[in-house]
Each structure stands twice: as structure tokens, then as C-alpha cells.
């Protein structure tokens, strides 16, 4: 048991996520440095920026996936619910609280049903009725139920790209996450599906905190309460989404990116 109050800064206790002086390296190459930010509970926090600006590495630090990558090292502090995750002993229990959706859809080569039932099973839910209920609820919320309810036994990895992406979201929801992290989820999805998922996210916000890494500036504008701008391995600035898009920025680069002058 980690004592939440132990050497946690006062503001960490009130935030869902608090990042202090985060630096990420792959070998000797710095991928991201000098990140300081906080994420409130039940907000959608947008992260925008061009490719290779360190956005995905940032997400990996929050659920401690850096532990699975021998080449990756991090310094600085990441507080989640007031607890420093860099000292978290059982990383699996940490990751079970955080749902992740990837840029490219990953339907596991299991049945559609088992794709969604896997996470509950891993955390010890084994009753068929409970699982049935979770599978249906999560697939419905991910706007996929109607399309797959008659073929829950087919392989999840053989669904279409858009369906697989919604399956990935259903799988993340099946963890009943406290924090949901989406990494450029719309890259491999058609615009209609993207809009449907965006509606789902607006609903989900009532129950969980969402970090939305996106390559689409307008997507951040539509969804995010606050937005951070990452560029070349640095966090340039963060602020209220409406302020940023109203041009109230501290750095010219931010405005240039938002207005599409580079990307």
C-alpha cells in the first residue's frame, strides 16, 4: 500500500495526473524533455503536435509501459491519483486502471467476445453472466454492438479496420478504466466512424478522465477541455482549448501549428 500523502505535493492529490520535469530517453537520444502539466479528473485533455514530437512516449510513461521497453528510460515524476507511478510495485494493477487505444486498430486474434472479456477475466471476473453483461455493455458503448452481435464468435482480428478500432475501444472500456488514453485513434478510421467515436467520448467523460493524443487539430478543438502542444520533444505550452484556438497563445509556433502553417 502506497501512502498517497507521502511526499506527494499538495496539488497532486487533487489532480488525476500530475507530471513534473518528465524526461524520456531512448538510449542516449532524448525523445521528450521538460514536461510539466496536470490533468483534472473528468476532463478531456488534448495533446496535439506533429509526428515524432514525443506524444506516444508520453502516454507510455503514464501507464509505465517504459518498463517493457529495455531501451527506454525516464526521469522526473508522474503522479496518478496522488501516487507516484515510478515507484508503483505491481505495474499490472496500475495498467488495469488505465485504458489505451492505439493509432492502428489491434483486434486480438481471439473471438470478438473474448477480445472484450479478456480484461475482466484477467482481473478475476469469470461468471458467464457477468461477462456477457460487460461484453454487451462495452460493445454498445463503442457503437459496435449492432454490427457484431450475431458473430461474437468470429475472430476480432478479421473485422474491418473501423470495426477493429471500435473493438479496441470496447476492450479499453471493459477494464472500467479510471483514465482512458487515446493515441491518434482516427488514423485508420473513416470520418463517419470517427464522429461516432467522438460522441462516445463526450459521454464517457462523465465517468472517466480522457487523454486524447491527436494529429487532427480540429478534433482537439471539438473535444478537449484543455490542450497541450508538443513539438520536437518539448511541451511548448498548454492552456484552455478555447483560448488556444482563439489565438491566445504564448508562442507563435503554437498558433502556426493550429492554423496549419506546418504539421
Amino acid at each position: 500500500m502506497v501512502n498517497p500523502s507521502q511526499d506527494a505535493p499538495a496539488q497532486a492529490k487533487n489532480k488525476k495526473v500530475l507530471i513534473e520535469n518528465l524526461e524520456i530517453k531512448y538510449g542516449d537520444t532524448v525523445a521528450l524533455t521538460d514536461v510539466n502539466l496536470d490533468i483534472e479528473a473528468n476532463e478531456i485533455y488534448g495533446i496535439i503536435g506533429p509526428a515524432n514530437s514525443g506524444k506516444t512516449s508520453f502516454l507510455n510513461c503514464i501507464n509505465r509501459m517504459d518498463d517493457m521497453r529495455p531501451n527506454m528510460s525516464t526521469t522526473g515524476r508522474v503522479w496518478f491519483n496522488g501516487i507516484d507511478v515510478t515507484n508503483w510495485r505491481n505495474l499490472y494493477s496500475l495498467r488495469r486502471q488505465i485504458g489505451v487505444v492505439f493509432p492502428l486498430p489491434v483486434g486480438l486474434p481471439l473471438t470478438v467476445y473474448n477480445n472484450v472479456a479478456l480484461a475482466p477475466q484477467l482481473s478475476g471476473i469469470n461468471k458467464k453472466a457477468d461477462l456477457d453483461e460487460i461484453v454487451e455493455r462495452c460493445l454498445r458503448r463503442a457503437a459496435l454492438w449492432d454490427e457484431v452481435k450475431d458473430r461474437l464468435d468470429s475472430l476480432g482480428s478479421l473485422l474491418s479496420g473501423g470495426q477493429q478500432q471500435r473493438l479496441t475501444i470496447a476492450r479499453a472500456l471493459s477494464q472500467e478504466p479510471d483514465l482512458l488514453m487515446l493515441d491518434e485513434f482516427s488514423i485508420a478510421v473513416d470520418p463517419v466512424t470517427t464522429m461516432r467515436i467522438e460522441d462516445v467520448l463526450k459521454e464517457l467523460k462523465k465517468e472517466m478522465t480522457i487523454i486524447l493524443v491527436t494529429n487532427l487539430v480540429q478534433q482537439a478543438q471539438r473535444l478537449a477541455d484543455r490542450t497541450a502542444f508538443f513539438l520536437n520533444g518539448r511541451m511548448v505550452e498548454m492552456g484552455k482549448t478555447e483560448d488556444l484556438f482563439a489565438g491566445k497563445v504564448q508562442h507563435q509556433e503554437t498558433l502556426d501549428y493550429i492554423e496549419g502553417r506546418f504539421g
Binding site: M1, V2, P4, N42, N81, G82, I83, W88, R89, N90, Y92, S93, L94, Q97, L122, D130, E133, I134, R137, E176, D178, K206, E207, M208
Partner: peptide, 24 residues
Amino acid sequence: MTGRAVNNTIQTDDSPDLDWYIDR
């Protein structure tokens, strides 16, 4: 079973569980 409540209890237990030991 309904959706998770808004003010859910935050899990702060980071102690190794059975699966952790099996994995090791």
C-alpha cells in the same frame, strides 16, 4: 451491474498479487 459510478473508489493498492507472483 451498472456503469461505474462517477465518484468511484480510487485503487491505490500497488502490492503484488497472485498473477504478479505467477509471472515472476
